[in-house]
Design a protein around this nucleic acid. Structure first.
Lengths: 128, 128
DNA sequence: AAGATATATGCTAATTTATGCATGTTTCTG
DNA sequence: CAGAAACATGCATAAATTAGCATATATCTT
């Protein structure tokens, strides 16, 4: 039986105990998301979002993957995934807000443009 | 499907994200414990312990029950119990340190003295 | 009632965390 | 190469949390 390290667990927990970081984690636990999406999701300035991402990344909770100009983040810690499943409920389908943002925000990242060019321009037109 | 309230969840989480409070919760999720025991467990001044207990009590996470001179605290929130099961592991047997403290600390609370008077005095003698 | 014991409360200083913002870096495009 | 787009970093300040300590309250004992 491994002795519990309350310091370590609470340090980890402290990173989750923040509404915006929790929102980020709830998004990236489903699918990897680029910073532009997360920025739209939180509706906060980009440096703010990057700052929260850094904290989570430095702790090894999320991992980044560069794809051209964009950086995609995904949940990389299995333990934290279990915690989130209990605290936020298990992942069911798509993130309720994420699908919305993919429609509304003209983001050039590959994730947003994996469909036909027609659908993209149509999407842009509907925004006015 | 109920919409997630990240503010509420993170506020709750913030209370758990503290090493001493986590230690308290790990104790009281097994059995109700009086303040004197928790004081011994944390090895911190009594006002410090009472302060942490107050935070958890005001949030409805733990509940107090007065028994004469002593106050016993127990985990009262089912949701937090689930969280702790995942974060600290499920409760197996007795708390590893608690049984120790019941032996070493001459506490007059009923929990410590639910055995024969002989055993109590014997315990006191062994401390010198 | 006086003293002792167990616990709670209030206040303050120290520390940590959060937030805002200016600027730096990298990659892509023309 | 110049400019733009996407993201990161550093730093200063504000806000929240922690921790220490004096003191208050309630109960029990004699």
């Amino acid at each position: 039986m491994t002795r519990l390290d309350y310091d370590e667990i609470s340090a980890r927990l402290r990173l989750l105990a923040h509404p915006e970081r929790l929102r980020i984690l709830d998004a990236v636990r489903r699918d990897s998301e680029c910073v532009c999406h997360l920025e739209a999701l939180l509706d906060k300035p980009q440096p703010y979002v990057s700052q929260q991402l850094r904290l989570l990344r430095d702790a090894g909770i999320i991992a980044d993957e560069k794809q051209g100009q964009n950086v995609f983040y995904r949940l990389s810690d299995a333990e934290v995934r279990d915690w989130l499943d209990v605290m936020l409920g298990p992942v069911v389908g798509e993130h309720p807000d994420m699908s919305l943002h993919k429609r509304l925000i003209p983001c050039p990242c590959p994730k947003c443009n994996d469909d036909t060019p027609l659908a993209v321009s149509e999407r842009l037109l509907q925004r006015s």
